[in-house]
């Protein structure tokens, strides 16, 4: 599904990614571990085309994304859901509106939106909070709204960049359970994290990045640095 071939990315003189080769298959759940600044976020930004690679090639379903025209990037992004540590919810919109917003801006019809949004909120277990604003929700709930928003386009791939970074253990586990559930339903998930206990719980493929290089790959691995 996603293939990195000798991918290199610099930020001025620092190498954020250095000669990275990686293959991710449909339906996988990947934990991407490493210290802050190791290159996890860069790797994700490259997948959604927010940053351009300096060398090598990234193929998504055999499409070379460096060849994708800038005006076509939005259509690529609709296939990829993204969530972040800081959630990026709109503070003046309710949970429902935040999810609906993602569908609106991509031109979905109103009846489809009113039909889909409650289903997605139910999937993340927040239908009862659909009319709550972000400041009325816990960190875990907010992150679940962000996940719901990322799922609005039924993406084939979900990128989660430190989604539990701001959450306590209970909330973090809730979010992780949700990600596992989404993966179980067929969506490929890439989880970037440095929460060792979460990674150890997942028992799926673990990729370790250090200083822009992949230093370890384990099937059903554990967090090691």
């Amino acid at each position: 599904m996603i293939k990195f071939e000798k991918v290199t990315k610099h930020y001025s003189k620092n190498k954020a990614l250095d000669d990275v080769n990686l293959e991710i298959h449909h339906g996988e759940f990947i934990s991407l571990v490493g210290l802050s600044g190791a290159g996890k976020s860069t790797l994700m930004k490259l997948i959604i085309g927010e940053e351009q690679i300096d060398g090598g090639k990234i193929l998504i379903d055999d499409i070379d994304i460096s060849q994708v025209r800038k005006s076509d990037l939005p259509y690529l992004r609709r296939k990829i859901g993204v969530i972040f540590q800081d959630m990026k919810l709109l503070p003046r919109r309710t949970a429902y509106e935040n999810v609906a917003f993602a569908m609106e801006v991509c031109g979905h019809r109103k009846d489809k939106i009113t039909d889909d949004v409650p289903k997605i909120l139910e999937l993340v277990g927040l239908l009862h909070k659909k009319d709550n604003f972000p400041h009325e929700m816990s960190g875990g709930e907010k992150q679940r709204v962000a996940i719901a928003r990322a799922l609005a386009h039924r993406p084939v791939l979900l990128l989660a960049d430190e989604p539990t970074g701001n959450l306590d253990e209970v909330n973090a586990n809730e979010v992780l359970d949700l990600l596992l559930k989404i993966n179980h339903l067929g969506t490929t998930v890439i989880l970037a994290t440095h929460a060792a206990d979460l990674v150890n719980r997942i028992k799926k493929r673990v990729i370790t990045i250090e200083n822009g290089k992949i230093t370890m790959e384990q099937e059903k691995g554990k967090y090691k640095l």
């Binding site: 690529l76 992004r77 609709r78 503070p91 917003f101 993602a102 801006v105 609005a152 386009h153």
Partner: peptide
């Protein structure tokens, strides 16, 4: 700013933004 960033992330086209 926030709204624009989110629009971009969820795949709104450039001219929609």
């Amino acid at each position: 700013k926030e709204e624009v960033e989110i629009m971009r992330l969820v795949g709104a086209t450039n001219w929609y933004i």
